[in-house]
């Protein structure tokens, strides 16, 4: 464990709490893509189910349980408790165009051609693109609540911080995970435009608005 990874994980943790806080205080899941949240459930369940047969550390175990549980809880909030506040007509990204190619990639690029390893690869690829429905929705509405942008910033920072972690691990341990690194670079690149607008507006105290 190094500081980059620790802060990356803490940022990921923070993003979940910011999202829960947003839903609770505004009593609404307006501006949040259900499709993206559903994809995260798929990502965490397919990747973290290894807690059933693999022990890494207490830290690793607790985090995995937390991410599975919290993502399912958010889905419950969106689908049941705050259902009327979710507008499916603006959450129109075609998820099948994303799951299909990811499944194909997972079948080709994996560390072992077994069910669990392909599932692990799939979760890595899917995570890198899972934010697309959310960003697509943002693009459509052209603006976002400040708290939602903080959520997205924390979520984007998580994988971005993993990049220096991988560089650090390359030099300190001599180990590289090409699948995770490639997907992580793609994932971070997808946030580039969002981060640009976030830093030039929200951080300066202005409202998040995309140029027309």
């Amino acid at each position: 464990m190094n500081l980059f990874r620790l802060f990356g994980d803490l940022s990921h943790l923070a993003s979940i709490f910011i999202l829960l806080h947003k839903i609770r205080t505004t009593r609404s899941c307006r501006g949040i893509s259900f499709k993206t949240q559903a994809l995260y459930v798929a990502v965490f369940v397919s990747r973290y189910l290894d807690i059933l047969w693999e022990w890494v550390s207490l830290y690793n175990f607790v985090m995995k349980v937390f991410f599975i549980a919290s993502s399912c809880f958010i889905l419950y909030l969106m689908k049941m408790k705050y259902r009327p506040t979710h507008d499916p007509s603006i959450d129109t990204f075609r998820v099948e165009f994303l799951v299909g190619p990811c499944a194909l990639l997972a079948l080709i690029f994996n560390y072992k051609f077994t069910f669990t390893e392909v599932l692990w690869s799939l979760s890595i690829f899917l995570e890198s693109l899972a934010i697309l429905p959310q960003l697509f929705m943002l693009q459509r509405t052209g603006e976002a609540e400040t708290i939602t942008t903080h959520y997205l910033a924390a979520l984007g920072a998580y994988r971005a911080l993993y990049i220096p972690n991988w560089i650090y691990r390359y030099f300190s341990e001599g180990v590289v995970d090409p699948i995770a690194v490639t997907a992580g670079l793609v994932q971070t690149a997808l946030y580039a435009d969002f981060f640009y607008v976030y830093f030039t507006t929200v951080i300066q105290g202005q409202k998040f608005e995309l140029p027309a």
Binding site: R5, D9, H12, D50, E54, V56, S57, N60, M63, K64, F67, Y111, W120, Y162, N165, W166, R169, Y170, G174, V175, V176, D177, P178, I179, A180
Partner: peptide, 10 residues
Amino acid sequence: PTWAPAKDEL
């Protein structure tokens, strides 16, 4: 480098 999965990461 060794090409290996970083399964200890989240």
